[in-house]
Amino acid sequence: MTDTVLAVAGAPGSPHPAAATTTAGAPGPRRATVTAVAGDGLDALPEPAGGGAGERRGRPRSAAADTAIVETVLRLLEEGATVADLSMERIAREAGVGKATVYRRWSGKPALMLDVMQALDIDTPAPTGTSVRDDLVQMLESMRRRGIAKRQSALVLTVLTQVKAQPELWDAYHTNVIQKRQQVMREILARGMASGEIRADEDVDFVAELFVGPMLSRVLLHEWQELPEGLAERIVDTVLDGVRPRG
């Protein structure tokens, strides 16, 4: 199954706050906003013991600094910089922090850009587990909203296009975001197969493609087609009728 509706969709747990709404009324991609971090003494943070993640000592990591650095990258991209143009040194300088501050938070540009992509994300809510149909609708609805955001946001398109041209960044996004979404879809369908709501004689990934394919087609291949409200329900109900056990 391939979920590349929007290559700036984040994984759950992203630290960046949500932002405004798209003109179509659906929640828009998140943009982190901060006031300032320059001169806040962040360069005085101690190095992590042993260099491992989660082994930091001293003053806790500043969420405001994290957000400000990500917001700086977004601003530079909006101003015309390319992903290839951005060095960790330039990002630190533009954010008003030391280079060491950036490297304490991210091992390198791929890790930082993954958080930048997540900052533009529209979250996929966790499945409720109460209804296979409702969980499938929820998954497809999040794809529909990401598709709307992609069409309406020049910055989203810029980041998507440039990240796809960077194999290391795209692989990191695929591993940390797309594969997690695929696994959630598999779990929903496996639950439906176990309960007898979905036929169990087909491969789960094949069945998943039946659900996501129509939405992907509209978002990626036929961008002139509308993404109206109710589309997720229409797709799910139509496919469910076709994959129910017979007799």
Rank of each mutant, 00 (worst) to 15 (best):
M1V: 12
T2R: 14
T4M: 07
V5C: 14
A7K: 15
A9Q: 08
A9G: 07
G10K: 03
G10C: 03
S14N: 03
S14I: 15
P17R: 01
A20C: 06
T22N: 14
G28L: 09
A32G: 09
A32M: 12
V34C: 13
D40E: 09
A44Y: 02
A49F: 12
G50T: 13
G51Y: 03
A53Y: 07
G54I: 03
G58S: 01
P60T: 06
P60A: 01
S62A: 13
A65T: 05
T67D: 09
V70W: 00
V70S: 03
V70C: 00
E79G: 00
A81E: 13
T82R: 08
V83M: 10
D85K: 04
L86Y: 06
A95M: 00
G96A: 07
G96I: 02
G98K: 01
A100K: 05
V102D: 00
R104V: 05
R105G: 02
W106P: 00
W106R: 01
S107W: 14
G108C: 13
G108I: 13
L112M: 03
M117R: 01
L120Y: 01
D121W: 13
D121M: 13
D123K: 09
P127K: 11
T128L: 04
G129P: 14
T130K: 15
S131G: 09
S131N: 06
R133F: 08
D135A: 06
V137G: 00
Q138I: 08
Q138P: 02
L140G: 05
L140A: 05
S142W: 12
M143W: 15
M143T: 10
M143A: 13
R146E: 01
R146W: 09
G147N: 03
G147M: 05
I148N: 08
K150R: 08
S153A: 03
A154L: 02
A154I: 03
T161Q: 14
Q162M: 08
Q162T: 02
V163F: 03
K164I: 10
Q166Y: 08
P167C: 05
L169G: 10
W170G: 02
D171F: 13
A172P: 00
Q179A: 12
Q179V: 05
R181F: 06
Q182E: 15
Q183P: 06
V184D: 10
E187Y: 14
G192F: 11
G192M: 08
S195P: 11
S195R: 09
R199G: 08
R199Q: 01
A200D: 09
D201V: 04
E202S: 10
D203G: 12
D205W: 04
A208L: 05
E209R: 15
L210V: 01
V212A: 14
V212F: 11
G213I: 10
P214V: 12
L216P: 02
S217T: 04
H222K: 15
L227C: 02
L227W: 11
L227A: 14
P228K: 11
G230W: 13
G230I: 07
G230L: 11
L231R: 07
R234Y: 09
D237H: 05
G242R: 15
V243R: 08
V243S: 10
V243C: 06
R244I: 07
R246I: 08
G247V: 15
